[in-house]
């Protein structure tokens, strides 16, 4: 059942207050959140806005999910990525990705105590797909959105390789990238803070 097919719901107190409190125990089949934002005689649809074409969506739908949904065709590897990195990224992230001046991208020597507190792709990022998604949408910082998908695959491969996660030869594409298991994934837990007195 789709939420929009629900009959308009009459708020007991017909006030205009946004978020009027409606008891959660009200009978019905829809979630209380749906009902309490309704107002009197809310139509099923207002008819404002226009349908959007698949082409128009495709032009701006650039996100990549951890399951690989959204990854484009194409491929790349760290050997090629290293060359692109030197030209397009090293000025801000350092020759080896550790020197800055901007965010450190490579963990480097993991035995050094100093590096254990550093957060990088190698020891902090839970998903490899995020590297692709972020670099494609936001980097290089001064020319965002300028990289081709092939370049992004290679840069992703280079950053994963430089962090010791894949070999120099590994080909990254829409099916291999989501399969990479990141070391930090096991540390991630959803927020466990709750309403009430416990400080977490």
């Amino acid at each position: 059942m789709l939420v929009n097919t629900i009959k308009p719901f009459l708020l007991a107190a017909a006030s205009a207050t946004f978020l009027a409190t409606v008891p959660h125990t009200d009978p019905g089949t829809v979630s209380f959140e749906t009902r309490r934002t309704d107002t009197l005689h809310y139509p099923e649809r207002f008819g404002f806005g226009k349908p959007v074409s698949a082409e128009k969506i495709a032009a701006i739908d650039i996100d990549v999910r951890p399951d690989g949904k959204g990854l484009p065709a194409g491929k790349g590897n760290a050997v090629i990525g290293k060359q692109i990195y030197a030209v397009k990224c090293s000025a801000c992230h350092g020759a080896s990705g550790t020197e800055g001046p901007n965010d450190r991208l490579v963990l480097g020597d993991t035995t050094s105590a100093k590096n254990r507190r550093v957060k990088t792709i190698g020891n902090y990022w839970p998903y490899a797909t995020t590297v692709f998604d972020y670099v494609r949408r936001a980097m290089p910082f001064n020319q965002p959105g300028s990289l081709t998908d092939e370049e992004v695959y290679s840069l992703t491969a280079y950053l994963l390789h430089a962090n010791g996660l894949i070999s120099e030869k590994t080909e990254l594409n829409a099916s291999t990238l989501p399969k990479i298991v990141m070391p930090a994934k096991k540390y991630f837990v959803p927020d466990d803070r709750e309403d009430g007195p416990v400080v977490k």
């Binding site: 999910r65 951890p66 990022w125 839970p126 995020t130």
Partner: peptide
């Protein structure tokens, strides 16, 4: 499912 963007991971 969540998208695991850079701002909600890194």
């Amino acid at each position: 499912q969540p998208f695991m963007t850079r701002e909600e991971t890194s």
